[in-house]
Computed example of a mutant assay.
Amino acid sequence: MTQEQAENDVCEKTEGWTHEDVGKRIVKRETPNGTYFNELIVNVFCQMCAAEFIGPSREAGGFLGGHECLHAWEFSQVMGRNDGLTE
């Protein structure tokens, strides 16, 4: 990989990622929870409701997991359960 290719694969943004940023890496990202290095910017979506997320891979996991929990709760409401679980 050339220096120019490596530079093109880096995203300097700390927020506001777009489709053009997907596949690039954030060299260093500091959060209240820790510091992330070489984190990939990804594009994911919820298969249930088609909500979409573009951003760091760590947050993408939270987005997907959060939607999974939300939709499980919605299903439990339809099934008439009140404990938040589905069968």
Results as ranks from 00 to 15, higher is better:
residue 70 L to V: 12
residue 61 G to N: 15
residue 44 V to K: 07
residue 41 I to M: 11
residue 78 V to D: 12
residue 44 V to Q: 03
residue 42 V to R: 02
residue 53 F to M: 01
residue 64 L to A: 07
residue 47 Q to F: 06
residue 26 I to G: 04
residue 41 I to P: 07
residue 60 A to D: 03
residue 51 A to P: 11
residue 80 G to M: 02
residue 55 G to S: 08
residue 51 A to T: 09
residue 79 M to L: 15
residue 55 G to Q: 10
residue 71 H to Y: 00
residue 29 R to H: 09
residue 75 F to L: 14
residue 21 D to S: 03
residue 34 G to D: 01
residue 25 R to E: 09
residue 23 G to S: 07
residue 66 G to T: 01
residue 74 E to M: 09
residue 59 E to L: 11
residue 34 G to N: 01
residue 49 C to P: 03
residue 69 C to Y: 01
residue 64 L to D: 03
residue 53 F to T: 02
residue 53 F to G: 02
residue 63 F to V: 05
residue 33 N to F: 15
residue 50 A to Y: 11
residue 26 I to C: 09
residue 47 Q to V: 07
residue 70 L to G: 07
residue 78 V to Y: 15
residue 24 K to L: 05
residue 42 V to W: 10
residue 23 G to R: 08
residue 80 G to C: 14
residue 71 H to P: 01
residue 45 F to P: 03
residue 55 G to M: 04
residue 52 E to V: 15
residue 21 D to K: 02
residue 40 L to P: 00
residue 60 A to T: 05
residue 44 V to N: 00
residue 45 F to S: 15
residue 67 H to A: 00
residue 35 T to M: 07
residue 33 N to M: 14
residue 66 G to H: 07
residue 65 G to M: 13
residue 44 V to R: 12
residue 40 L to H: 05
residue 43 N to Y: 14
residue 38 N to D: 15
residue 20 E to D: 15
residue 47 Q to D: 07
residue 66 G to A: 02
residue 27 V to C: 02
residue 51 A to N: 14
residue 34 G to P: 01
residue 73 W to D: 11
residue 54 I to C: 07
residue 23 G to Y: 11
residue 38 N to H: 14
residue 27 V to R: 08
residue 71 H to E: 00
residue 56 P to W: 06
residue 37 F to N: 06
residue 26 I to T: 08
residue 73 W to L: 14
residue 41 I to C: 08
residue 40 L to F: 11
residue 58 R to T: 13
residue 59 E to G: 10
residue 46 C to W: 06
residue 38 N to C: 05
residue 36 Y to C: 03
residue 54 I to M: 12
residue 47 Q to G: 09
residue 23 G to H: 12
residue 34 G to F: 14
residue 66 G to R: 03
residue 56 P to K: 06
residue 48 M to Q: 08
residue 75 F to M: 10
residue 78 V to T: 14
residue 77 Q to D: 10
residue 53 F to H: 10
residue 57 S to Q: 12
residue 61 G to L: 13
residue 47 Q to S: 08
residue 65 G to V: 09
residue 32 P to S: 05
residue 37 F to L: 04
residue 51 A to V: 12
residue 23 G to N: 11
residue 69 C to G: 07
residue 65 G to F: 13
residue 80 G to P: 13
residue 78 V to I: 15
residue 73 W to N: 05
residue 58 R to N: 13
residue 42 V to Q: 01
residue 61 G to W: 11
residue 72 A to Y: 03
residue 22 V to E: 08
residue 78 V to C: 08
residue 28 K to R: 14
residue 49 C to W: 00
residue 25 R to D: 08
residue 29 R to V: 04
residue 56 P to A: 11
residue 79 M to W: 12
residue 53 F to C: 02
residue 72 A to M: 06
residue 26 I to F: 10
